[in-house]
């Protein structure tokens, strides 16, 4: 009898161990169902989409919708209770946190860098030049050693956290020309620059790929490595915010973001995980 009991116990232990070893972080969602709405920061979208895909493939009862809008929209909407998780590519202000009772979760580090078309000859600028370009003082690529074509500026809308970070850390809060074309997400910025040989814009480092070329700023190229070691200064955290402490499905989602798998996804999508 005793042997049977110990056998049972040891079997249970093995089962528990194996579920720890071979189980997935997705198990967080095993007894969850319902809907989760996510909106806001557009830099977050690739990570959110991947996580959503994994969860909904495994647990069809869970519904997660992902929308963009920009960091400002994310903070507003989670504050108003229109969504359960609001994403922001900038730290929420004290005022915003106090007003809505928000709880921020910083799950990755990201940079913001200027990008141009890969065929563009100009791939390095000083900070002063960058400011002059974005304020509209320098209007031709020739002035920067490029071809004789007008510089096409691209910027983001007011709600963008990427804009706010780039504006305060790369442009030192200098003006951004009113003549700049406006796009409404990191993805759209990348696509716009990839299609415009004479364009310049700025995008989350996580979104950079071969379709665009990063601008080396004061000798430092924005890459995952330079952001990680701190030599590239235009960096920021990626936040997910909830109204009050997260519960249920929302909590599972936030926990998953910080789990091994969640952090791995963040790394795969080009961000620097916090754990």
């Amino acid at each position: 009898m005793r042997t049977l009991q110990s056998l049972f116990v040891s079997f249970a232990v093995v089962l528990l161990m194996s579920s720890i070893c071979f189980g997935s972080d997705l198990d967080l969602f095993s007894d969850q169902h319902g809907t989760l709405r996510i909106a806001g920061g557009t830099a977050h979208i690739p990570v959110m989409k991947e996580i959503t895909k994994r969860i909904m493939t495994r647990y069809p009862d869970v519904r997660i919708s992902v929308a963009g809008g920009g960091s400002g929209v994310g903070i507003q909407q989670v504050g108003e209770g229109m969504v359960e998780i609001g994403n922001a590519g900038r730290a929420a202000t004290d005022d915003e946190i106090a007003r809505f009772g928000l709880v921020p979760f910083k799950w990755a580090i990201d940079g913001v860098g200027a990008i141009v078309h890969p065929d563009n000859g100009v791939k390095a600028l000083t900070r002063t030049q960058l400011q002059a370009v974005f304020s509209g003082t320098i209007t031709n690529w020739q002035q920067l050693g490029g071809v004789d074509r007008t510089i096409n500026l691209y910027t983001r809308d007011q709600a963008s956290g990427t804009r706010k970070v780039f504006w305060s850390k790369a442009l030192n809060k200098g003006d951004i020309s009113m003549a700049a074309n406006v796009v409404n997400s990191n993805g759209a910025m990348k696509t716009a620059i990839a299609n415009d040989p004479y364009g310049i814009g700025y995008v989350s480092v996580g979104h950079m790929d071969a379709s665009t070329a990063p601008i080396t700023l004061d000798g430092v190229t924005p890459t995952l490595e330079t952001v990680r070691n701190g030599s590239y200064g235009v960096a920021r955290g990626l936040y997910s915010l909830t109204k009050g402490q997260p519960q249920g499905l929302t909590k599972a989602f936030i926990d998953y973001l910080f789990s091994g798998e969640g952090q791995q996804i963040a790394a795969d999508k080009g961000f620097i995980p916090v754990r």
């Binding site: 909106a39 959110m48 989409k49 519904r63 997660i64 919708s65 992902v66 929308a67 963009g68």
Partner: peptide
């Protein structure tokens, strides 16, 4: 309308 939502319940 959103970019990713799946089939609505």
């Amino acid at each position: 309308v959103v970019a990713t939502a799946g089939v609505p319940h």
